[in-house]
Design a protein around this nucleic acid. Structure first.
Lengths: 338, 338
DNA sequence: ATAAAAATCCAAAACGTTTCGGATTTTGTT
DNA sequence: AACAAAATCCGAAACGTTTTGGATTTTTAT
């Protein structure tokens, strides 16, 4: 493995000069720089990032901390798309990304801060962690720059990227209302999830603005799980047969509701209209295809990485990024659409 | 940031002793070890992996080099599941994983070896690279330990994990034959992909063993793309109306064939049976659900990581892992199944 | 009590890089 | 020609850890 020292010897200069030549400093003669670069190429030199990181006290590496990266979770490609987005930006600016998953068999006894400091990441992006996750506490207290996805916490060192969940939910419900629906049920995620809170708010606002009553009993929690949503939908539909449509806080749960409809023999969308949230891949492949509020998850990852690195380099204007959502109308709400 | 030196000072011992105490060496008194560990905890110490990696000349980090991690590619969650598997094992044995993607906007000018050496990974896993990819050349020549996924190259420093693609294809085709199909077309991937080669072989073997003729003109290349497969299927079906079933070398391409069938007004499976390969999530959500040969992609990632780390630590028996596949019978081949 | 053996500790070098402060050489000015 | 200024170079320290080889102390055996 050739080092800077080898180059220095070969070029007949000091290692200082080699370092400064390779890093583009101005106090080295262009001729010697050319020569050094040439020799470096010949010797097939590549810098040792460990040594560099050690002395510079930064690694040009960010951590992506996700929760729930298990075999099963791959159905929901939210995490994956975010990851792809992060990866994209990171590679554009020549950083590296290391993946931390909080669901090892033995629940990691290491704290968030330890994880980050030990691996010497300059900052971290947190995705998919719950509000009651102990990690979250630490983040705010720690001094490690970090960007949260879909959790609106802001401080000197932490920012976040999210979408306008109130507006997104509102658009979904307004769509249902415009189709003539008056008895709209909602399958939400779980208590205390920020997005759930916000989507419920959007749900209520849409009803209110349309002069429709809000009924607490038409809202159920599906825990973002397909099966739970199915159960809740069955329960709601039998207890409240007046329901003609569902707004679900995630596509996965909408799939559950579709199953429930099938079980109960209700035709979609004629007898029951269903709209989801996220626009996961599956959404356009179900029968009928699922209407939904699309979130650009790739962009969320991309923006998160961008924001984090801007923060690291001290050139972030604000620490918040809010992205747009888009209403995708498919056949689960409108017959023969497209 | 507290260092080993701080601990040494606080404990009144040398830094050598602290290092050896923390790393469980036997030449340190249990009482002092206890004390040192206690102090380390109090000072909230976490080791600097950069410094450690520098002196030990290894980073306990492996690289996952994937190709085609773009916004679009997320439909095919193959990569993601492999990644999840790699991540799982890696976190079990306290390694780290850094993700390299070869599809940055500017095609990476850095070579594979540079990438690995620069980031100081101890070894790498390569997934999704094509046979004509320049990276592949380098791998074999380089001395960096590495594990390939689905490319059977073996040397002192490189191993691979794959599934038995000949057998898998055979199982798929035998299934079609057992259903009475005699005119079976195949949509393969692209030329010179190892898995394509093998699956074609399995296709032929199954035909041969059943005493059926092999017709070159019933095989088309779909480039592992949905659209290409659709086009090819339309072409084949119009040119050769005797075809009653398709074996596709990937589920994504099978989706394309399903679209083709729909366009041509052919009912599945009555008029056209279709079987895919991979068992991606989408497969069980299409109408009708897609029969397929399931590969355990998570396991492939897990085994790849395991193999690589065994190789790194010099305790790998062999450098090859071949996993099983499973025939999943769904309604695209058998009406009212399940 | 003494020698040998075991246990426990430590100083210093090494890993490969960046950077500070200054030294040397070249160029420009008069 | 002499001096100032600019350009170019370099030695040494520092980053935080592991490890080598030996030094010191304690225990054991005689």
């Amino acid at each position: 493995m050739t080092t800077i020292k080898d180059i220095a010897k070969a070029a007949g200069v000091s290692i200082t000069t080699v370092s400064r030549a390779l890093n583009g400093y101005s106090d080295v003669n262009e001729k010697t720089r050319k020569k050094i670069i040439e020799i470096a190429k010949q010797l097939n030199y590549s810098p040792n990032t460990l040594a560099r990181g050690l002395v510079m006290n930064k690694s040009k590496t960010i951590g992506l901390l996700v929760s729930g990266l298990t075999r099963e979770s791959t159905k929901d490609n939210f995490t994956f798309e975010v990851l792809a987005g992060v990866n994209q930006y990171v590679s554009e600016v020549d950083y590296d990304m290391v993946l931390f998953s909080t669901t090892s068999t033995k629940q990691r006894e290491k704290t968030y801060t330890q994880l980050c400091r030990e691996r010497r990441v300059d900052g971290a992006i947190l995705q998919g962690i719950r509000v009651d996750d102990p990690y979250l506490q630490e983040v705010v207290e720690s001094d490690i720059p970090c960007v949260l996805i879909d959790i609106p916490i802001e401080s000197e060192t932490v920012g976040y990227v999210t979408t306008d969940n109130v507006l997104g939910a509102k658009k979904a419900v307004q769509h249902l209302i415009s189709l003539g629906h008056r008895h709209i049920a909602m399958i939400n995620g779980y208590e205390f999830a920020f997005v759930s809170e916000q989507r419920l708010k959007g749900f209520q606002e849409a009803l209110f603005e349309a002069g429709l009553p809000f009924h607490e009993h038409l809202v159920a929690n599906g825990a973002f799980k397909e099966e739970r949503a199915e159960q809740e939908a069955v329960r709601l539909l039998t207890q409240h047969p007046e329901i003609t449509s569902f707004f679900c806080a995630s596509d996965l749960m909408a799939l559950g509701v579709m199953k429930a409809a099938k079980t109960l023999g209700k035709r979609i969308p004629e007898e029951l209209a269903i709209i989801g949230y996220d626009d996961i891949i599956l959404a356009s492949y179900t029968t009928p295809p699922l209407s939904t509020i699309a979130q650009n998850k790739f962009a969320m990852g991309y923006e998160a990485a961008k924001l984090l690195i801007e923060m690291l380099e001290g050139k972030a204007q604000s620490r918040v990024r809010v992205l747009e959502t888009e209403l995708k109308i498919r056949e689960s709400t409108v017959k023969n659409h497209g």
